[in-house]
Nucleic acid binder design. Structure first.
Lengths: 347, 347
DNA sequence: TGCGACATCCAAAGCGCTTTGGGAGCGATT
DNA sequence: AATCGCTCCCAAAGCGCTTTGGATGTCGCA
């Protein structure tokens, strides 16, 4: 049994489709009594307007697109993503929007965005995982499609709307915190540094060191996929150095867990011999402790970022002519049990 | 500049919309030469048929819905999900389908599925995270909407299509493996046991023990969210027992990492004093080692499951009258460095 | 009594596409 | 020369909704 249509509903009520449509959409030119009758019949039949037809008639798809770049070189379909989606999804379902995902191979991005525009399945787009000089931004701007970037793209020439965490400041702050504890050999276990966020994190780290007159040491800086193995590998290599680091700054909880494992495998104690500060995205299934954090961390909810992005995009769609919007989220530095003053006795 | 329409394209070519449509869709009643002209003009203008209009005309939305239940009690928006989506997404984009996600609070499931059906935004649905006696299955069957369940729902009364890992056999096999190594005190760190997969895993574990005439010990069985903390908590409690387990069977790599941490914190050595076998979903960003596995594991790619689900669903949509389909994926037992014969000397 | 104002409803067009039901043109067949 | 059978194209209807532009009826007021 197919779903009931507006026309059928109208026929049953002895009304015209016009009136029923108006009644349901709250237009004034309909008797309140009739409106009530219509509403009642609608709920009785579980009537829902067909989205495709409505979209065609109104020109609004009532859907937002999330385009996930998939490349052979790295995984963007990552732990961050699920939580971000969850946050954005909350907003969409509250506002009656659908969320459509497209996985697009890196090579076909231009074609894909064009196509999505032409197909008209979505009213706006959220851009994930911006890289330095990301070409997608200029493309979307040119296509005239509303969009919000989660993150920023250093080097973009056109203005655009974004929601981002202050990665630079967060990592600068974290580095300062470790410096204040007396650490001088601080390692950076970063994400892939063609990703914008990773670039900014490194800048923050470098700025903090520079402010104290300290030079960076390439041997203490790695970049890569933010996995547990990455952390373990990095720590293993660095702890074997003649001058090993006394502290690690990690880009994700997973990396931090890898570092912790290797630190402990070396017979060192975390939060005494070695300190770790990590960035914590507050992922649903990867918590940094409960009430009290385990790792000292720069904490910023990616789910909240998802909510903000979604909200901003809906705002832009409602008022497309408005100026680009920006929202900077500040990460808070929460102190856990993974940091302590630098050991004074040389190891 | 709005995207070009069929009509405009036809006008430019001096043809009727009918002919252009047929040319583009490969119908035979059009001159090959004209078809070529049309095709060329189409690509030149980046023409893409408007999905909404096409959907309305054909009655096919060319989209698949993934409904993610969100409940207050636990997170289904979990690490599994991103990888599953990635797998399914591959198939969809290859076949020209869109993927639409809806986050639906547990309480509103019935309403939500009805609504999705009536709105006509999708041609089929993939059901995530089935629970015991999951009501969604009967509901979808009644609505006459094509669907495939990722997993199964013990106790469902109607026939339905599913793709599932043989969780029972996997955990039975893993338990036997540990028993063969001489372990007698084997702990089970399971997922939440109202989830179907967790129930089956427990059954497999119990069956293996029973087959050797061993009783289960409630003190060695926990269930919960599969996080690193869960593993650590469970291990801490169990290692403090008078008769601690010599082996752990974990439902996820994260739990296993938690167990490992606690084991090492107790000064025990993994793969000598204590063994761990875990289930490994082969998540993109949570790898169990590289070439050689770190943990001995029952391994089954959730991304592959996503692909299979998607493929099956498209098959059902193509032939809705066909009988329900089933696909059982077998997990392989891969041996890593986390298992060894049970220590003979009592600790 | 007549007229404008208002409230309430409806017919029809249109969104961009597919699809049914022809119809014109043309060479081949009888 | 009339007919048949193709090939190739088109007009028009329809998918389910919104929206413009009336139509009808009722009421108040001069």
């Amino acid at each position: 049994m197919p779903p009931i249509t507006l026309k059928q509903l109208a026929a049953e009520l002895g009304l015209s489709p016009t009136t029923v449509s108006r009644a349901l959409n709250g237009y004034p030119e309909v008797n309140e009594q009739t409106r009530a009758r219509v509403a009642q019949a609608a709920t009785r039949h579980h009537y829902r307007p067909n989205t495709r037809a409505k979209a065609l008639a109104t020109g609004r798809a009532m859907a937002i697109g999330h385009i996930i770049p998939i490349s052979t070189q790295h995984e963007i379909v990552n732990p961050i993503f699920a939580d971000f989606i969850a946050g954005a999804g909350e907003v969409y379902s509250r506002e009656g929007y659908d969320m459509v995902l497209s996985l697009v191979p890196d090579a076909e991005q231009t074609r894909a965005y064009r196509e999505i525009r032409a197909k008209g399945t979505v009213d706006g787009i959220i851009v994930h995982g911006p890289k330095e000089d990301d070409p997608r931004i200029a493309l979307l701007a040119e296509l005239g499609m509303p969009f919000v970037v989660h993150g920023r793209a250093t080097g973009a020439k056109v203005p655009y709307s974004w929601v981002d965490v202050n990665n630079t400041r967060a990592f600068q702050r974290a580095t300062e915190f470790l410096l204040d504890l007396g650490h001088r050999r601080i390692a950076l276990v970063n994400g892939l540094e063609f990703m914008d966020f990773a670039i900014r994190r490194r800048h923050g780290y470098e700025a903090a060191l520079a402010a104290r007159g300290l030079a960076t040491d390439p041997a203490l800086m790695v970049q890569g996929e933010m996995t547990e193995a990455q952390g373990a590998h990095a720590a293993r290599a660095m702890l074997a150095l003649a001058h090993p680091p006394t502290a690690f700054l990690c880009s994700s909880l997973l990396s931090a867990m890898g570092v912790r494992r290797e630190v402990e495998a070396h017979g060192l104690r975390l939060g005494r011999d070695v300190s770790i500060v990590t960035h914590d995205d507050e992922l649903g299934y990867l918590r940094n402790g409960e009430a009290e954090p385990i790792f000292t961390a720069t904490r910023s909810s990616v789910r909240e970022a998802g909510r903000r992005c979604a909200q901003m995009l809906l705002g832009i769609i409602a008022d497309p002519a408005s100026a680009p919007r920006h929202e900077m989220l500040e990460a808070v530095l929460v102190v856990g049990r993974s940091t302590a003053p630098a050991p004074t006795i040389a190891r």
